[in-house]
């Protein structure tokens, strides 16, 4: 099976204003369509390039601004996703995205 293409250019820790954090999929049904929609809508509010990698399936990185690519993450409950953002608003972008993965009533995991 072919892996999804990484976003171009691929965000990396060497670039300016790059940051990352790892979140865990909490939903019993995995990362489903509505959550994918929330990720894409949130990611598109920011200028930063944002990549997501499924650490447990070794899939990605995929572009967080593309629902098509997010659907290829095959993220199930318990999978860890690494979010890498690069750009002037990288940090608030990751804050906003991490909120999506936080369980109700719990704060987002720290950076």
């Amino acid at each position: 099976m072919s892996r999804p293409r990484p976003p171009h250019p691929q965000p990396g820790p060497e670039g300016p204003a790059s940051c990352s954090r790892t979140v865990t999929v909490q939903e019993p049904m995995g990362l489903h369509l509505r959550t994918g929609k929330a990720i894409v809508q949130t990611a598109n509010r920011f200028q930063a390039r944002i990549a997501i990698r499924n650490l447990d399936q070794d899939v990605g990185p995929v572009d967080a601004k593309s629902i098509l690519q997010i659907m290829q993450l095959q993220a199930r409950q318990g999978h860890r996703l690494e979010l890498v953002a690069q750009g002037p608003d990288a940090r608030p972008a990751l804050e906003a995205l991490a909120q999506i993965f936080a369980q109700p009533g719990e704060p987002a995991p720290p950076s």
Binding site: M1, S2, L33, K37, V40, Q41, N44, S66, I67, L68, M71, Q72
Partner: peptide, 28 residues
Amino acid sequence: AIVAALEASLGGSLDAVNAAAEGTGSLV
């Protein structure tokens, strides 16, 4: 339709939305 609707809501152009929608044809 799922992908096109989301991309359209984000303000994508006709050709950009269509390209995203047609990309689902190779979705695994």
